[in-house]
Computed example of a mutant assay.
Amino acid sequence: MTDAPLRLAVIIGSTREGRVGDRIARWFVAQASGRAGLSVAIVDLASFTFPAGYPARATPQMSAFAAEVDRADAFVVVTPEYNHSFPASLKQAIDFAYDEWHAKPVGFVSYGCRSAGQHAVDQLRTVFTALHAVSVRDWVGVDLLDGGDDLEAFLAGESPVQAAQVLLDQLSWWGRTLRSGRAAHPYVS
């Protein structure tokens, strides 16, 4: 199992029409795809039909999302910052899984204006700690005001690319270490 590719799920946390999260996620996937030993999948919350309220029994879409989380060894959450927090659609989806998050690393690629999504990341770290996940230290923050009219050109710059590589280094180390640990000793919450 230690030689198997690390399964990295890149979760697009915004479901808003006109979002830029899908473009940022594709850029990050391109950064990750160049790495040996990683198998990368996009999990786009906009492609799920979640219920407006939390039902007594999981819907097929809720179960499908939890299965995606369960399959992954590590996560990158691509999140906007809305009003100094992360979107409700992301919190709703995160809550559809519980044990599936345990003892797995999560990293963040955030975006916003001026803060580059740091407030959203800070709050997500608290949420993932409650889910027994390990958040990695470094993150990629994209200030949409710096990107001007050409987000792709901005993302191709040295600073975002370097930040993505550091994040991938940390996720790879934690992902392999925690996967080996879970295999040797099942996690107890």
Rank of each mutant, 00 (worst) to 15 (best):
Y54D: 14
G175A: 03
I11N: 01
A9E: 00
A116Q: 13
S89E: 03
V134G: 02
V106H: 07
F28A: 11
A97L: 02
D146R: 02
V188E: 10
P60V: 07
T15G: 02
V127C: 06
L168K: 08
S189D: 09
Q61S: 12
V106W: 02
L90I: 01
H132E: 12
A164L: 11
Q31M: 14
A74F: 05
A156C: 01
M1S: 06
A103T: 13
T177W: 14
V142A: 05
A103E: 14
W173E: 04
L6G: 02
P55M: 04
G181V: 11
I94C: 04
C113G: 15
H185Q: 10
E152A: 11
R71P: 03
A183W: 08
A130L: 12
A130I: 10
G141W: 07
E100T: 04
G141M: 09
A32L: 08
G18T: 11
S39N: 14
D70W: 08
F154E: 00
G148E: 02
S172M: 10
V121T: 13
D22K: 10
V20E: 00
L131H: 11
N83F: 07
Q162W: 14
K91F: 00
L151D: 00
Q92Y: 10
M1E: 03
Y82W: 13
D44K: 08
T129L: 14
A30E: 13
R137A: 14
S189T: 11
R7T: 11
Q61I: 05
L6Q: 08
R19P: 04
V140A: 05
G148Q: 01
T126V: 15
E81G: 01
A183F: 09
R176S: 02
A116W: 10
A88E: 01
P186H: 06
R71Q: 11
T59D: 02
V121I: 15
Q162Y: 15
Q165I: 07
N83P: 06
G181Q: 12
G107Y: 03
S39H: 13
A4W: 09
G18W: 11
V10L: 00
Y82D: 05
R176T: 07
G37Q: 10
R16I: 05
A93L: 00
W101C: 07
E68I: 04
D95I: 09
S47I: 07
Q118I: 15
A64K: 06
A103I: 09
S39L: 15
G117Q: 08
A4G: 08
Y82G: 05
L144N: 05
L145S: 14
S110H: 01
T2L: 12
L144H: 04
F75M: 02
I94A: 02
S189P: 15
H119D: 13
L151F: 04
R125P: 08
S33L: 12
F96G: 01
S172A: 13
A116M: 12
L144D: 05
A9F: 00
I42T: 14
G21E: 03
Y187T: 15
S159I: 15
R7H: 08
D70E: 15
I24A: 02
D73A: 07
S180C: 03
Y98A: 11
D169E: 13
E81Y: 03
A153G: 00
F108W: 08
K104E: 07
S180W: 04
V140Q: 00
V106D: 02
L144M: 13
R23D: 10
D169T: 13
S180F: 01
A164Q: 12
V109H: 07
